[in-house]
């Protein structure tokens, strides 16, 4: 299982990922799956250049990302996967990417969003998508940084 961390984080690649997770997991590759980012040439370049030397960053849309992740999951190379929202992960899962655990790392608040835990807020749609992921057998957990104890989504989601 080389997809060491599949993380939903609306800031994608940032301090917690680069300075904490990357080191803690010893990951050697970061794969970002997000349709909008994949279309934005500038952001794609910034993300590619922002990771530490020696850690390649790939930015894919969901279609190419799914194929790439299925291939990577079969290799021993430890990989961190970043997505901006639950729907992306759900789509990856539907496309057959083997995801055992999805980590909610950062989901900002806003109008119509309910706070689940500290920096994790969800919209009603996202809540449905996360429940669907759980039904498909993917565990959903909240773990902001590597040293935190993972909190099961189920324990915070009273409605499911």
């Amino acid at each position: 299982m080389s997809l060491r961390l599949v993380r939903i984080d609306d800031r994608l690649l940032h301090g917690q990922v680069v300075a904490v997770w990357l080191r803690a997991l010893g990951a050697q590759r970061i794969v970002i799956v997000d349709d909008a980012t994949a279309r934005d040439e500038f952001l794609r370049e910034v993300l590619t250049l922002a990771a530490p030397q020696g850690v390649p960053v790939e930015v894919h849309d969901v279609a190419t990302g799914a194929a790439r992740l299925i291939a990577l999951a079969a290799t021993p190379e430890p990989v961190i996967v970043l997505a901006r929202m639950p729907r992306t992960v759900l789509e990856l899962r539907h496309a057959g990417v083997p995801i055992e655990v999805v980590d909610l790392g950062g989901m900002g608040s806003g109008p119509g969003r309910r706070r689940l835990h500290k920096t994790i807020s969800v919209s009603p749609d996202e809540l449905r998508e996360l429940r669907e992921l759980e039904q498909m057998g993917t565990r959903v957990e909240i773990q902001i940084v590597a040293d935190d104890r993972p909190i099961p989504f189920r324990s915070l989601d009273s409605g499911s």
């Binding site: 984080d9 800031r11 994608l12 690649l13 940032h14 301090g15 990922v17 680069v18 300075a19 980012t37 934005d40 952001l43 910034v46 993300l47 922002a50 990771a51």
Partner: peptide, 11 residues
Amino acid sequence: GLMGPLAGIGD
């Protein structure tokens, strides 16, 4: 889009 990657480098 920028706040994340720049925080990664900045941190």
